[in-house]
Every structure is written in structure tokens, then in C-alpha cells.
Simulated assay, not measured.
Amino acid sequence: MNRWNKDGQHVIYTAESRALCALELLAHTNGVVPAGNYKTMVIEIPETEIKELSVEELPKNWKSVKAYPQLQRIGARWYEEGKQLLLRVPSALIPTEFNYVINTKHPAFKNVSIASLESFFWDYRL
């Protein structure tokens, strides 16, 4: 189940840093270090208008799974309106850091490009 979109809405979840991306992945795999070779995809996004959501705009329980239906409605509305390519949302793990949701149906999506692919090393202590 996705936090910020409903089924059938094609989005890409990204993080503002490699560290946050790794933490989000660990959280979504129940703390089990993913097996296999991983890559970090660094993407370039053209200057674009961003819809930003602050913690103050979200339901009080926004970090919980119980809030998913409300958050999906917020994300679905942004997706359907199609005004912005990016939705900036606070991370439920570190609310002062941000994840970005990319609307693949937005006209500017065609200008998103892969800048580089980097090997990602999972530290054995994780």
C-alpha cells in the first residue's frame, strides 16, 4: 500500500538524499537488508513548480498506516490536478527531511533524465 498515491496512479517515489533513500528502503523491508546488487539512480529534474506539503497540513496521525487513506486522497488530488511534476512530502521517518513523488503523467516528466547510476554498498552493520 502506498502512502501518497492510489492504485493505478503511476508515480515514482524518491528521496532527497542517498541516506534517506536507504533508510526508507530498510523501513519498508522491515529492517532486513535487501539482498542483491543495488544501484542509486541520480536523476535530473528540470526547474519546475513543486507542490509542498508541511507536517502542519497533514492529519495528526499522518505517520501511521491508519492515515494512509487520508494521505492517498491528498496525493490523488495532486496527481489528478496535474499542476506540478513533484510533490514534496515530509519523511515519516525523519519529518525534517523530504521525499519527492514524481507524477509520471505530467507533461514535464519527459524532461526527467538519469544523470548517473552508482553502485550502492549496504554496510554489514545494517
Results as ranks from 00 to 15, higher is better:
Ser17Thr: 08
Pro34Glu: 11
Val89Gly: 02
Lys83Ile: 13
Leu23Val: 15
Ser91Ile: 03
Ile74Asn: 00
Val65Met: 14
Ala108Ile: 10
Tyr38Leu: 09
Glu80Thr: 15
Thr14Leu: 07
Tyr13Pro: 04
Ile50Asn: 03
Ile50Lys: 05
Gly75Ala: 03
Ser116Lys: 08
Gly8Ile: 09
Pro90Lys: 00
Asp123Ser: 09
Ile50Arg: 15
His10Tyr: 14
Ala15Thr: 05
Tyr100Val: 11
Ala67Leu: 03
Gly31Asn: 04
Asn5Lys: 05
Ile45Gln: 10
Ile74Ala: 02
Asn37Glu: 12
Glu56Ile: 06
Arg3Phe: 00
His10Thr: 15
Gly31Ala: 08
Ile12Thr: 14
Pro59Asp: 02
Lys110Pro: 10
Gly8Pro: 09
Pro34Gln: 06
Leu71Ser: 01
Ile43Asp: 07
Ile12Cys: 13
Arg18Tyr: 15
Trp62Ile: 00
Leu26Ser: 03
Pro34Asn: 05
Gly8Met: 06
Ala27Thr: 09
Pro95Cys: 10
Leu86Arg: 06
Ser54Asp: 03
Thr14Lys: 00
Lys105Cys: 12
Ala76Asp: 09
Glu56Gly: 13
Ser91Thr: 04
Cys21Gln: 04
Asn103Glu: 03
Leu25Asp: 11
Ser91Lys: 02
Arg73Phe: 00
Ala35Cys: 14
Trp122Val: 02
Ala108Trp: 06
Leu71Phe: 05
Pro107Ala: 05
Glu80Trp: 15
Leu23Cys: 11
Met1Ala: 11
Lys6Gly: 13
Lys6Tyr: 15
Thr14Gln: 01
Tyr100Ala: 11
Ile45Gly: 08
Leu25Gly: 04
Pro69Thr: 02
Leu71Pro: 03
Gly75Phe: 00
Phe121Arg: 13
Leu23Ile: 10
Tyr79Leu: 07
Tyr100Pro: 05
Arg3Ser: 01
Glu81Ala: 07
Tyr13Leu: 01
Leu23Lys: 14
